[in-house]
């Protein structure tokens, strides 16, 4: 098996790569973790991970700037239905549109816009930075065996307001419910950072490596 982590110049890719390697090792899964900026490596990968930090528009631009990458993503994730995991802005890019700074078209896999969080408690700071627990709306294979009490690490100012509530697997409370994890078919996305979320993160990554959607 080969997992392609897409390198399009965004984010802390070393941590993501190391976390996937460690999760695979601990779960006894033999897999190659392939940090790549080549569309053809993504087109032939068994599993795809799209990380991302920064602004939505910048990330989309970065992805578009890699020759053939968006087409390769659509082919592997849509046509071939290979398991896909988006992380942080990589998850937000699964949406219809991002409304940060300017309106930017997303990949259109989860219907809804990425909008600024509006906590109902004015004392809550933006960005949300730190550890919070998840409220799961329904059971999903990526959360199998993960206790509800475990925390995930968040750093974000925007979230994906999904139109179809069934796409939202888990929310996080930040002055009201905020989308924390989305899934639809073979596609899943975490607003939090699994690669920074210690026990919860490593378990979730192992589950992704085993996932047969």
């Amino acid at each position: 098996m080969r997992v392609a982590i897409i390198d399009y110049g965004s984010g802390n890719l070393r941590s993501a790569t190391k976390a996937f390697e460690r999760a695979a090792r601990e779960a006894g899964i033999t897999t190659e973790i392939d940090l790549t900026d080549k569309a053809e490596r993504v087109a032939t990968a068994d599993r795809i991970v799209l990380p991302g930090v920064g602004a939505y528009a910048d990330c989309r631009r970065g992805l578009d700037a890699v020759p053939g990458m968006v087409e390769a993503l659509r082919d592997t994730v849509e046509a071939k239905a290979r398991p896909f995991l988006g992380i942080c802005v990589g998850m937000q890019l699964m949406s219809s549109r991002g409304l940060e700074k300017t309106t930017t078209e997303g990949l259109g896999w989860i219907r809804g816009d990425v909008v600024r969080m509006t906590p109902d408690d004015p004392a809550l700071k933006i960005p949300q930075i730190g550890w919070n627990t998840l409220t799961r709306r329904y059971a999903h294979p990526l959360f199998e065996g993960i206790p509800e009490t475990l925390h995930a690490y968040f750093v974000h100012s925007y979230h994906l307001a999904a139109e179809n509530p069934d796409d939202v697997v888990a929310t996080v409370d930040y002055g009201g419910p905020v989308t924390a994890f989305v899934a639809s078919g073979n596609k899943a996305g975490a607003q939090f950072h699994p690669e920074k979320s210690q026990a919860l993160g490593l378990s979730l990554i192992s589950n992704f490596l085993r996932w047969k959607p």
């Binding site: 070393r14 941590s15 190391k18 976390a19 690490y153 950072h193 210690q198 993160g201 490593l202």
Partner: peptide, 11 residues
């Protein structure tokens, strides 16, 4: 930093 990031999955 690189050696730390190889071992620690925390911010």
């Amino acid at each position: 930093v690189a050696r730390t990031a190889d071992h620690c999955f925390m911010p």
